[in-house]
Design a binder for these strands. Structure first.
Lengths: 237, 237
DNA sequence: CCGTTTTCTTGATCTGGATCAAGTCATCGG
DNA sequence: CCGATGACTTGATCCAGATCAAGAAAACGG
């Protein structure tokens, strides 16, 4: 786990993030100069809920599980993929993290001091606008997740998740699950045992599963069951 | 249902909202001059999910239920009380509403054109900062709600809700429920029948209920059961 | 390559909460 | 004041999904 200033070779990837793409060069450089990059092995806890938010985190490679615990129980809330940020809201409000984060695999994470983020927000209008847009996006994502949870059964959630993955994989009828099943279960708010059964229960709707490989024999049939709704399932709006 | 330009007597209330308190006078007046105020009877649908977001809404008096539907089911997502705004995220992103809204009682609602909000955001730094802060706050509220849903049983959710209400009522041991039980049930993600039984199930922990009046005989006992957690239950952080 | 560990599956059982069905109570317009 | 409508409660039943238990299949470290 080596900590070092950010190598300039990482700048372009970060610059492309829509959070940083619309700002002027100089404030961007200010942010980058104060930032660090660290390489983490799998399953390392990066932040713990309740801690104060000293850094905005950016996943450069690998992936990060955002999860929460209460009274001995634990649930996956979301996953951060490259290249994206996480815990922006805590950074902005200078408030404690509401979620913990751990690497799922070997990951490179950039750390930008929260103070710098707040300072540059005031100095650069493009950055300010991008932060607002990103926050609004995050908010809408959680609302969608909440609707998914409150309005659907676990089988319906799985069916819609598969449709999302299918679309994400380029509208082909075969693809691999993005993460291990026990995590998928937690994300969907169910147990691993039940996920196993849910896959079987989707068989009549043309879903075939082999390990982490999914084949959707009849997309129309699955859609008829899942009833996908852009106001819940479309991540872009 | 009368539509008219906003009377100046409403300005001070709105000005006090932290969304508008830190901005300069002139852009504030710009927003107000473009705004409308309407009086609505109870149970009127103000906005429908999926519609485009033409106005930022501000509850001046009364209260508003934010709810969502899918496949014939419906759930309450949140309640907007005076004086606060709702659907800020949709306004900012110029994206369709993710939730519908209906008045719970006779209500006065101010409508600020979304275009104006976006324009003034670019012109006034104080307003920009306030919007970011408000959005981050909203985001964190939903995350808390999601943790509540995924990590707790309905009985635990009710117990913690009562503790929140108790605190909100000024730390007294008797208070009235803020809304009718069928809505409370929906907010807590349960059925009215089950809410009824849940109140009874909390009796051993010192909860007594009479109509909408609640008496908490033993706060310590209830807390021992509910295990409130600031990272889920504290609305301010 | 093998033994260990972990994930995944499958079956049996249990339970929290939903649904269905009635009845009671409160509110309110006439 | 009455009748009607909708809210709330209570009991009986049902079901989705959790839990428990055990085996099968992968993943992994040496």
């Amino acid at each position: 786990m080596v900590r070092l200033g950010m190598p300039e070779s990482d700048y372009p990837d970060i610059r492309e993030l829509h959070l940083f793409s619309e700002m002027a060069d100089e404030p961007f450089m200010t942010l980058m100069r104060g930032a660090y990059v660290q390489n983490f092995p799998p399953r390392i806890e990066l932040i713990t809920e309740g801690d104060s938010s000293d850094f905005l985190h950016i996943v450069l490679s690998g992936s990060v599980d955002l999860f929460s615990s209460w009274n001995g129980r634990e649930t996956s809330m979301a996953t951060a993929w490259p290249v994206s940020t996480f815990i922006l809201a805590a950074t902005i409000k200078d408030a404690p993290y509401l979620m913990s984060a751990r690497t799922l695999e070997k990951s490179r994470i950039a750390l930008v001091p929260s103070q710098d983020v707040r300072a540059v927000f005031d100095a650069d209008q493009g950055f300010a606008r991008a932060i607002v847009s990103e926050l609004a996006q995050c908010y809408r994502s959680v609302i969608k997740a909440q609707k998914d949870l409150k309005l659907r059964s676990s089988l319906e959630r799985l069916a819609n998740h598969l449709l999302q993955q299918q679309k994400h994989s380029g509208d082909v009828n075969e693809f691999d699950l993005q993460f291990e099943k026990r995590r998928l279960a937690s994300v969907l708010g169910m147990t691993p045992e039940n996920l196993s059964r849910a896959f079987k229960a989707l068989h009549p709707y043309g879903v075939e599963i082999d390990g982490s490989h999914v084949r959707i024999a009849d997309l129309g049939e699955l859609k008829r069951f899942a009833k996908p709704d852009p106001l819940i399932d479309d991540p872009s709006t």
